[in-house]
């Protein structure tokens, strides 16, 4: 492993779980006031999310999918507020990336709009269900989902340019197709999609999960767009990122209106992950993609296990 990357991995591992190490039982520390001063948790949160931002970029995942299980598992904040912050983190990342992706033609508004309509309506339902269920049930379901994502990331293949013999009737009617310039291949790519009805159905489930757990849903969007519907990988990743700005908006409003967004948790996380993402982009040149991917999978495995065990009352 590259030496700077090895140091980075060590620091990330240390800081990610520093909350648990520093405070022992963090909930008790916060409640009885005998632990850390009030500003310590937001400060640790800022540092941890800064490194999560780096890892998210290097690992090619959204910040939300790392943020919710790790912060929910190892910080004293209630899961309601962590999910609210997670949605804002995912939303902010998508809003920041959206304009560039749309202008370059890598993201497709026509591909995103019908899918986002379904997913954003479903995300409202997911958010309401998530806020109505007891925390341990959501925590358990979150753990299972994160472990499912680990399996998906480990097994899922990606296809740079999937073969789509013929666009289906719905995608043709909606003109869910386009052309983009692939700088790596130095050519224009003409793309179209198929199996759009199946895709629309799957986005119902994706929306519910995004709203319920406060996760960005790029981990699910990309396989559906790329492997099922046949959009080129770059179009899938870009359109997925842009779609999060629509889908997470609807769920974010539900959390905001229910009072489940706390500025002291949300803003340091948001700034931390944004700054980390900027550093992550610079580190992309030296980072080994396969090593970072394994680190991300390892972090998700640990955080997912923690969420599951916490939800089941085994590891509180």
């Amino acid at each position: 492993m590259h030496a700077p990357l090895r140091r980075l991995v060590a620091v990330i591992s240390l800081l990610t779980f520093s909350g648990a190490v520093l405070a022992g039982d963090p909930t008790a520390a916060a409640q009885n006031g005998s632990g850390l001063p009030w500003w310590a948790w937001p400060a640790i949160l800022f540092v941890v999310t800064f490194f999560l931002g780096i890892v998210a970029v290097l690992g090619g995942v959204g910040g939300g999918v790392l943020f919710v299980p790790i912060v929910g598992g190892f910080f004293p904040f209630h899961l309601d507020f962590v999910r609210g912050a997670g949605l804002m983190v995912a939303l902010a990342g998508a809003l920041a990336a959206g304009p560039g992706l749309l202008k370059s033609g890598m993201a497709s508004l026509r591909l995103a709009m019908p899918l986002a309509l379904i997913a954003s309506a479903a995300a409202i339902v997911g958010a309401m269900v998530g806020l109505a269920l007891p925390a341990h049930v959501v925590q358990t379901a979150l753990g299972i989902t994160i472990l499912g994502i680990v399996v998906l990331m480990w097994l899922a293949k990606k296809s740079e340019f999937p073969e789509v013999p013929r666009a289906d009737a719905l995608s043709t009617a909606l003109r869910m197709n386009g052309i983009f310039y692939d700088a790596a291949a130095r050519r224009e790519i003409d793309w179209k999609v198929h199996r759009s009805v199946k895709g629309l159905f799957l986005f119902v489930g994706i929306g519910v999960m995004a709203g319920m757990f406060g996760l960005g849903a790029g981990w699910a969007n990309v396989p559906v767009l790329n492997l099922l519907m046949g959009a080129p990988l770059k179009v899938s990743v870009s359109t997925s990122k842009f779609m999060l700005s629509i889908v997470d908006t609807s769920a974010a409003w539900v959390y905001l209106n229910q009072g489940a967004v706390l500025a002291m948790i949300t803003v340091p996380s948001l700034i931390g992950i944004m700054l980390g993402s900027l550093v992550g982009v610079r580190l992309l040149k030296v980072a080994s993609a396969s090593v970072v991917r394994k680190v991300v999978i390892g972090m998700l495995l640990l955080a997912g296990s923690r969420a599951l065990l916490k939800g089941l009352g085994i590891w509180n």
Binding site: G98, L102, K103
Partner: peptide, 21 residues
């Protein structure tokens, strides 16, 4: 934000959306 070949691939509504976003 333009592709390397300088051509514009985004539709009018996509560009308008991007600018406001």
């Amino acid at each position: 934000d333009m592709p390397d070949n300088g051509k514009q691939y985004a539709s009018e509504e996509q560009l308008a959306y991007a600018v406001w976003l």
